[in-house]
């Protein structure tokens, strides 16, 4: 029975992902990307990772997509005028090649992982994916990556300011 919600959400995700790619209107595309991201968040929920679910909603749907919308309004690419310039044809070819590589890689991993991935593990801890478990792991085993994250955020902060406040001649 666990496959019914999965298939439903997957259908929603694929539909809006296609809409995102095919839509000529950038803001419509951004809106469908929000729905794709929310569907991905629900996948996490179905896997029992509730903290990641809410982080996905809060950070991707709630914060990053707002930036996307702002940038679209900033550059005024949102309207019906279409893209700023036509995509060069090599982009299409590169996209198809890279997409195939990605698909092949995913297939390879699923094939190599064997039974473990194809069948949902029967027993996971009751508190799997809870904020407590994530906190315990993050502040013991994964302490170094956590601290390095702050450096990444620092770099992003400085980069954003340098780019935004640059004086154009």
């Amino acid at each position: 029975m666990t496959w019914i919600p999965f298939v439903l959400i997957a259908a929603v995700a694929v539909f809006f992902a296609l809409y995102l790619v095919l839509s000529k209107n950038a803001v419509h595309g951004a809106l469908s990307l929000v729905l794709v991201l929310v569907s991905l968040a629900i996948f996490f929920l179905l896997l029992g990772a509730e903290f990641i679910f809410i982080v996905q909603v809060a950070v991707y749907a709630g914060a990053i997509m707002v930036l996307f919308l702002f940038v679209m309004m900033l550059l005024n690419v949102g309207g019906a005028e279409g893209p700023l310039r036509e995509n060069p044809s090599w982009q299409l070819a590169a996209a198809i090649v890279l997409g195939c590589v990605l698909l092949f890689e995913a297939a390879l991993h699923i094939a190599r992982a064997g039974e473990g991935v194809r069948h949902f593990p029967q027993a996971i801890a009751a508190d799997f994916g809870s904020p407590e478990r994530i906190g315990q792991l993050l502040f013991s085993s994964y302490l170094l990556p956590f601290e390095i994250t702050s450096l990444v955020l620092l770099a992003a902060m400085i980069g954003a300011v340098v780019l935004a406040l640059r004086r154009f001649p």
Partner: peptide
């Protein structure tokens, strides 16, 4: 009754931005 109630409320209230931005833009 969910484990992450408080984060859920904050996450959903952060979605309120969309209604306003999109209304203004459209």
């Amino acid at each position: 009754h969910v484990n992450i109630g408080i984060l859920y409320v904050l996450a959903l209230s952060s979605l309120a931005v969309y209604g306003i931005t999109l209304a203004g833009w459209s």
